[in-house]
């Protein structure tokens, strides 16, 4: 390998190493994809916003923060904002947050017999 390539490779490796691995507070890497949760409950509130929609979701006696998909994706796949209005019964399947026991990232949501894949 010539000098330039070696220097570039070192630079890239150092750059990657600089990113702190310890702290993960809400990003896509902070969910445990080895554990699948299925929550049956009621939507208390919803946001249909970028970068991704969310639900305040009552299930199992708790209120969960459920992370959905970008509004453009949800709409493309047939899940409109109106389908997520408060009081709607739904099932969400997804992965729990490693940091917050009341947060999960939904892979799919079923409302009124219709399932929408979110990923």
């Amino acid at each position: 390998m010539n000098r330039i390539a070696r220097r570039t490779l070192i630079a890239a490796a150092l750059g990657a190493a600089l990113a702190p691995a310890a702290l993960a507070h809400h990003g896509w890497g902070s969910y445990d994809s080895n554990t699948v949760l299925t929550l049956n409950g009621t939507i208390r509130a919803a946001t249909y916003e970028n970068p991704h929609g969310t639900l305040q979701f009552d299930a199992d006696g708790k209120t969960w923060l459920v992370i959905l998909a970008p509004p453009s994706r949800m709409q493309n796949r047939g899940l409109e904002a109106a389908a997520l209005k408060p009081g709607t019964v739904a099932t969400v399947v997804g992965y729990p947050s490693r940091n917050d026991p009341l947060e999960m990232r939904a892979e799919r949501i079923t409302v009124d017999g219709k399932t929408t894949e979110l990923r």
Partner: peptide, 11 residues
């Protein structure tokens, strides 16, 4: 900077 910019979404 490019790498960290991409990694923002994962943390």
């Amino acid at each position: 900077a490019l790498i960290l910019g991409r990694l923002i979404a994962y943390f």
